[in-house]
Design a protein around this nucleic acid. Structure first.
Length: 360
DNA sequence: GGTAGACCTGGACGC
DNA sequence: GCGTCCAGGTCTACC
């Protein structure tokens, strides 16, 4: 079998729902704007055996239309089942139109566009590592880290194709890598030890995806557990929770401060603005991350056009707080005073450093 | 509990 | 072309 079809939820639109979160721009995923098709590479075989599979998904431009899935090699029924499960997780095919109605009832702004699903990875492990690679780094570096993780540690697909030709590495694979090797080959920097340790925790069963994805597990229990993991702080924990489909916590970062200040008009220190952003989205209750995210996403789309037109190597690399802040958008240019503040702070730091050197 | 500084990389910037 | 600075979230030491 090298092709099959999937019946998605009645309101599912591939271009909208796949291009709904930054991970659609990260390897091994690839969105092709010209054809409106999504592809990825999945490692569905037994560890050490067989190659990865390139998976290509298309849909007619019609909500709820059948998803046509094409593979670059023939797969067994078991492998096909794993590919279906992976795609279902990535594209949130388990979230029906009725499920999203609850969100739209709380936040009617996104009812017309139908926004509600957030693209994620095929496995919890990949979501966790992708989150760690997005911490304390500009977005272009996250793109590089994920590409190199796939190219150097992931299983190769049988054929060449668009984007990365390798699957995302499994936990078993990353648990065996020396941290120094990961740092040298994948540019992950000090995250090397944390990534390998997380992989080992998955392999040893100390992190149990089943427990994390079980509806019986409380948000509080998961949040508490996540904060114990290496490389996972408040931002990463909240982000992993939204990837698990738990939208009540906001992963607030520097980008949230930019949004609070530039779009919502909040004033104050970054900490004060974050508090105001928290309060602003509180009325959206269990869906507050969706409200927050699609508001941010709408801002990006006003700047760069619809997400389904973005390409990883061009538009996709321009999403950094500093780039968005410094751009000369009509009516949204940062106040001159702020630019002067940045320049002044830089000069003051240089002076402080020089003084420190003189007193040594 | 709050704060300062180190961690590491790619990109921006000044010379 | 080279050197320096900056942004980014987590972690640890210290008060």
């Amino acid at each position: 079998m090298n092709r099959f079809s999937i019946t998605p939820p009645t309101d599912f639109v591939l271009a909208r729902d796949a291009c709904s979160y930054g991970y659609f721009l990260l390897a091994p995923n690839h969105w092709e704007p010209r054809t409106g098709s999504f592809s990825t590479v999945m490692d569905v075989g037994v560890e050490g055996e067989g190659g990865a599979v390139r998976v290509h998904v298309m849909q007619e431009r019609l909500a709820g239309a059948t998803l046509r899935v094409r593979l670059d090699r023939s797969v067994s029924a078991l492998e096909a089942k794993a590919i279906r499960a992976g795609l279902s997780r990535m594209l949130r095919l388990d979230e029906s139109a009725e499920d999203l109605a609850g969100f739209h009832a709380l936040d009617a702004r996104f009812k017309e566009s139908g926004r509600g699903r957030l693209m994620r990875s095929a496995t919890v492990f990949e979501d966790v590592i992708k989150t760690v690679t997005s911490c304390n780094v500009a977005w272009p570096s996250t793109i590089i880290m994920n590409r190199r993780l796939c190219e150097t540690q992931g299983k190769a697909s049988a054929t060449a194709g668009p984007g990365c030709g390798h699957a995302f590495p499994t936990a078993a694979r990353l648990a065996r890598v020396r941290p120094a090797s990961l740092r040298a080959r994948c540019s992950v920097g000090y995250r090397d030890v944390r990534i390998v340790e997380l992989a080992k925790m998955f392999v040893r069963g100390e992190i149990n995806p089943g427990w994390l994805e079980s509806a019986a597990t409380s948000d509080e229990a998961i949040h508490e557990a996540l904060l114990e993991w290496p490389g996972v702080g408040p931002y990463a924990a909240a982000n992993i929770m939204q990837l698990l489909g738990r939208y009540e916590r906001l992963p607030l970062d520097s980008e949230s401060v930019r949004h609070g200040r530039d779009v919502l008009g909040f004033k104050g220190t970054p900490a004060q603005i974050m508090k105001k952003v928290q309060g602003h989205f509180a009325p959206f209750g269990v869906h507050r991350f969706r409200s927050y995210w699609f508001e941010v996403w709408a801002f990006y789309e006003r700047k760069r056009g619809p997400a389904w037109t973005w390409e990883r190597e061009t538009t996709g690399k321009t999403f950094t707080a500093s780039k968005l802040k410094d751009e000369d958008f009509a009516g949204e240019r940062p106040p001159t005073g702020e630019r002067e503040d940045r320049s002044t702070r830089r000069t003051q730091r240089a002076q402080k450093k020089r003084r420190a050197g003189e007193t040594r």
